[in-house]
Simulated scan of single mutants.
Amino acid sequence: MYLQEQFFKDQIKIIHESRDAKEESFERLQQEERDKVKQSYVNPSNGEEKKYRSAEIDNFIKSQEKEMEEFVEERDIDGDRDPETDMLIKAHEDNKTAMKWRHWEEEVELEKDFDAKLTQLMEKYSPHCA
């Protein structure tokens, strides 16, 4: 039983580590994209072009920051959002809580069933007083 439990805990740990690696990769990709845009606007030939390119970089960065804020809002639990909005982490936590609740209910029923059967067995082998 211990080995089975450990197996499942290891599987969950692997999933969490993989998720963390994906998020790190995602963040790195966002930063690389920002760097790429900055690099593409290096060495403008005149002052007007420099202003234009600087504005484009600023717009890109603002756009990317807005998208990242939206991503974080959808991913994270945020009490300020509409309660009907399904947020990924909150929904996941709610599902885990519901699963644990079902498990506990099943375990209580299992124990009650065992208790009833044990009581019957003890009654079967108890000395009967006349």
Rank of each mutant, 00 (worst) to 15 (best):
H92L: 14
M87K: 07
I61D: 09
L110T: 02
E65D: 15
T85V: 13
M87Q: 11
L110W: 01
W104E: 15
F60N: 04
E74H: 03
E65A: 14
K100S: 05
D94N: 14
F71C: 08
E74M: 03
F114E: 13
E73P: 02
S54L: 07
L110S: 05
I57V: 12
D86N: 15
E70R: 10
T85H: 11
K100V: 11
L110Q: 07
D78L: 00
E84K: 08
D78M: 03
W104R: 14
E106K: 10
K66E: 15
E56R: 06
T97Q: 13
D76Y: 12
K62Q: 14
G79P: 04
L121K: 09
L88V: 00
P83M: 01
I61W: 02
E74N: 04
E105K: 07
T85S: 08
L118Q: 13
H103A: 11
R75D: 03
D78F: 01
T97L: 13
A116Q: 04
V72F: 06
E70C: 11
D78K: 00
W104C: 06
V108Q: 00
Q120M: 07
D76F: 11
N95S: 08
D115L: 14
L118K: 13
E74G: 02
T85Y: 08
L121N: 12
N59T: 12
A116W: 04
T97N: 12
F60M: 00
E67L: 12
M122E: 03
W101A: 10
S54G: 06
W101M: 11
T97I: 11
D58Q: 13
E56Y: 07
D113Y: 10
R102H: 14
D113W: 11
I57D: 00
K66C: 12
E93S: 06
